[in-house]
Amino acid sequence: MNLEEYFRRIGFHGSYDKLDLATLKLIHKLHILSIPFENLSIHCGERIIMDLEVIFNKVVRNSRGGWCLENNFLFNWVLREMGYDTTMLGSRVFNSILNDFDSDDSHLINKVVIDGKPYITDVSFGVSFQIWEPLELISGKDQHQAAGVFRLLDKGHIWVLEKTARKPLVVNPEFAKSNLVNRYETNQIYCFTYKPRESEHFLETNHKLQTDPASLFTNKSICSLQTPTGFKALIGWTYCEVTYKPEEGVDVLDMRDVTDDQIEQILREQFNVKLQSKLQPKNKKVCYTI
Rank of each mutant, 00 (worst) to 15 (best):
252 V>R: 00
92 R>G: 04
51 D>V: 07
255 M>S: 02
137 L>S: 03
220 K>V: 11
116 G>Y: 00
120 I>F: 02
29 K>L: 13
64 R>E: 15
133 E>K: 15
259 T>N: 13
218 T>N: 09
179 N>G: 06
165 A>Q: 05
264 E>I: 04
122 D>L: 00
126 G>N: 14
38 E>P: 01
275 L>T: 06
143 Q>A: 11
1 M>H: 12
207 H>W: 15
208 K>Y: 07
211 T>M: 01
104 D>C: 12
228 P>F: 06
240 C>L: 10
73 F>N: 01
278 K>P: 03
106 S>K: 06
190 Y>K: 05
235 I>R: 00
43 H>E: 14
221 S>E: 02
129 F>L: 02
113 V>Q: 06
128 S>W: 01
171 V>C: 04
88 M>T: 07
139 S>Y: 08
284 K>S: 06
187 N>V: 05
273 V>R: 01
141 K>R: 04
17 D>C: 04
227 T>H: 07
11 G>A: 03
156 G>V: 15
270 Q>R: 11
16 Y>P: 00
219 N>Q: 13
169 L>C: 07
251 D>E: 05
62 N>P: 01
154 D>K: 13
258 V>P: 00
46 E>N: 10
133 E>L: 15
110 N>I: 04
122 D>A: 08
42 I>A: 04
285 K>P: 12
158 I>R: 11
281 P>R: 09
84 Y>V: 07
153 L>H: 10
37 F>L: 07
253 L>K: 00
6 Y>I: 13
283 N>E: 13
2 N>T: 14
258 V>D: 01
253 L>M: 05
214 A>W: 11
267 L>K: 11
34 S>L: 11
115 D>Y: 09
128 S>Q: 04
242 V>A: 11
110 N>R: 00
177 K>I: 12
45 G>S: 09
104 D>V: 15
47 R>P: 09
4 E>L: 13
153 L>N: 11
63 S>A: 15
56 F>W: 10
218 T>K: 11
73 F>C: 01
120 I>C: 03
162 E>M: 04
94 F>H: 10
142 D>E: 12
213 P>Y: 04
7 F>G: 08
188 Q>K: 14
252 V>W: 02
14 G>D: 05
4 E>H: 10
213 P>G: 06
127 V>G: 00
232 K>Y: 02
118 P>T: 06
172 N>A: 12
97 I>S: 13
143 Q>W: 09
198 E>I: 03
162 E>C: 09
26 L>H: 04
158 I>V: 15
27 I>C: 09
13 H>Y: 08
271 F>N: 03
22 A>W: 10
88 M>S: 01
261 D>Y: 14
108 L>G: 03
70 E>P: 10
289 T>I: 15
125 F>H: 08
96 S>D: 08
175 F>N: 10
213 P>F: 02
22 A>P: 14
38 E>Y: 08
277 S>C: 12
129 F>S: 01
286 V>Q: 14
266 I>Q: 03
255 M>R: 05
192 F>Y: 01
206 N>W: 01
140 G>M: 02
91 S>H: 14
241 E>D: 08
110 N>F: 05
112 V>K: 02
20 D>Y: 06
39 N>A: 12
69 L>S: 03
72 N>H: 13
175 F>L: 07
184 Y>N: 14
